[in-house]
């Protein structure tokens, strides 16, 4: 009797978390997969089983391929630079310098600001003729340029915004990791004659590897998850030049109301993210030292 009531107690305590997880994570994921094999229900017509038709349509959809390519360039442009910058800034603000607390806070500000507000600030920077960027280039007598309205610059502009936003956030992780490295290691290296760069390369960088792995996975996920900036700044344009995968899913699902195709795209996105995470763990785990 006592055993039974203890069990009931345990399950009751677990229940709230289980309900939330099941309702908002597990069920939607399973439902998405299921929906991707059905047609979109419209008015009188209920959803019918279509097998792999949605996937077939996706392979033939040029916008999907453009969004995917855009996303790969976007990931390639943001991840290495934001991680490198984060590491550099962390090493810098970890040292002894005046106003270091202020500096740390300043780097972290982009993370605290709401994404929409951030996008609005940058929208002003990029605005043609009177935006900040235009005023600076105009002062040097350079011709006017519509940064967000041109196909070959719009993705670059979004990459810069994302790096600016992510680097400060990643820096916090690096800072925490740097502070966990005992100062005696630097002293031992100094006595052995190691310079700052040598010490960083042989000791600090390898000891930061667990953090780098963690940050890298986060960065990859973030680069495929970005949608707010695009909604505010470009709406995927011009001519889908800044459409990323998740934005395209949002468009298909909530503008074109093609929920079955949106589900198909979502399954592909999840598959990409899962395989990226697994690959990183498999390849980097071996070269990572955990304390």
């Amino acid at each position: 009797m006592i055993r039974l009531s203890a069990q009931v107690h345990g399950w009751l305590l677990l229940l709230p978390a289980m309900v939330l997880l099941a309702a908002f994570t597990h069920y939607p994921a399973a439902a998405t997969l299921l929906h991707s094999f059905f047609s979109t229900p419209k008015g009188e017509r209920p959803a019918v089983w279509v097998g792999l038709d949605n996937y077939q349509g996706m392979v033939e959809d040029p916008v999907f391929w453009q969004a995917l390519t855009n996303n790969l360039w976007f990931a390639l442009g943001t991840i290495p630079v934001s991680i490198g910058l984060a590491m550099l800034m962390a090493v810098w603000v970890n040292g002894k310098l005046a106003g270091r607390g202020f500096l740390r806070m300043a780097y972290f500000t982009p993370t605290v600001l709401p994404m929409i507000a951030v996008a609005n600030i940058w929208l002003f920077f990029y605005t043609p003729t009177y935006g900040l960027l235009e005023q600076v280039t105009g002062a040097f007598g350079l011709p006017s340029h519509n940064w967000l309205g041109t196909q070959n610059t719009v993705l670059g502009c979004l990459i810069v915004v994302t790096i600016w936003k992510e680097a400060g956030f990643f820096m916090i992780f690096y800072l925490a990791a740097l502070q966990a490295i005992p100062p005696a290691l630097a002293e031992a290296a100094a006595i052995e004659g190691a310079g700052r760069w040598y010490f960083f390369r042989r000791v600090v960088f390898p000891l930061l590897m667990p953090t780098t792995l963690f940050v890298l996975i986060n960065a990859v996920i973030n680069s495929f998850r970005l949608v707010e900036h695009i909604i505010v700044m470009t709406k995927g344009g011009p001519d889908n030049a800044s459409a990323l995968l998740l934005y395209y899913i949002y468009e298909v699902g909530f503008k074109f109301w093609d929920s079955a195709y949106a589900s198909t795209l979502t399954v592909v996105l999840l598959a990409i993210l899962a395989s990226a995470a697994i690959a990183q763990f498999v390849f980097l785990e071996k070269r990572t030292h955990y304390q």
Binding site: P182, A184, E187, A188, A190, I191, E192, P206, Q291
Partner: peptide
């Protein structure tokens, strides 16, 4: 002079071994 230029060696209380090497 910098520590490296003093031609000394040192053993630390915590040993200060590099954990990943």
């Amino acid at each position: 002079l910098a520590p490296a230029a003093r031609r000394i060696s040192m053993v630390f209380q915590s040993y200060a071994l590099f954990p990943h090497l």
